[in-house]
Amino acid sequence: MIELKNLSRQFGEMWAVRDLNLTINKGEFCVLVGTSGCGKSTTLRMINRLIEHSAGEIHIDGQPVRGFREDLLRRRIGYVIQHVGLFPHWTVARNIGLVPRLLGWEPERIAARVDELMALLGMSAERFSGKYPRQLSGGQAQRVGVARALAADPEILLMDEPFGALDPLTRDGLQEELLSLHHRLNKTIVFVTHDMDEALRLADRLVVMHEGQIRQQGRPIELLREPVDEFVESLLGGNSRGLKEAALTPVAQRLCHAEMTSGVPDIDANKTLRDALSLMLWHRVDCLNVVEGSESLGTLRLADVVTARAPMGTTRGLSS
């Protein structure tokens, strides 16, 4: 659990972060979002003390971060940044093994851990462990970045716009993988982004920041439906919030176990209502067959997509 209490940071006359209170529970995926200069990166970097806070307190599992030696604190916290920051003069394996090496692990244990992590991130150890960062694509490099952050099995992962420089397709794939990693490993993740779609897709807890303070926090669906003010509303997409909400709702929730309709397109039950709407618009139909693998589950009608509104507690379920 990470607790930020009355946290402030001043740069000269300017308050980058002012009197911020936030509790991130263990295993939670917390996304800080906001315009540039809103203090989200500063907040993140204060957690591992890359930036020292001017006032307030930060506790990790009840202990103040100031009580640790900086470097020892950081070795316990995974850290991933936008430009990857892989060490260009080290091989992939050496990059991933950095923190275990700093912690003084045995070489055999480090090697085994590196192989394990590469397998976890779907990279062939045989093909990649001897390569240098500049021989990797952007997506591969960021995978290595994530593996490096996970190397010493930290409880907490800090990610500062990690997918910001990647093309949309690669970013989409890595978001998917990160969600599944989070599901499997149950790490506490603090993630900074300015991409609202990314934030909505990944967050358990979405924190909207503005001018160094939290404007609103909560589950994505709560913020979409009940933004506290116009700023949050416009940041969340204004009139396009309907589609963003649809992107958070799986097809399975609106499915009607009615008779199969023949001659209409299929849609996978794991897809979202947004995909379903797009498919309907494309094929000029108002009804889809919902399938899971080769098995047909029922149909989805346009009327159900548009009118029915699921209870709040059940909307998130994309990660599985």
Binding site: N48, L50, D71, L72, L73, R74, R75, R76, Y79, I81, V84, G85, L86, F87, P88, L98, V99, L102, R148, L158
Partner: peptide
């Protein structure tokens, strides 16, 4: 790279 190095501990 320096930021990452410090951030890694």
């Amino acid at each position: 790279v320096i930021d990452a190095a410090r951030g890694m501990g």
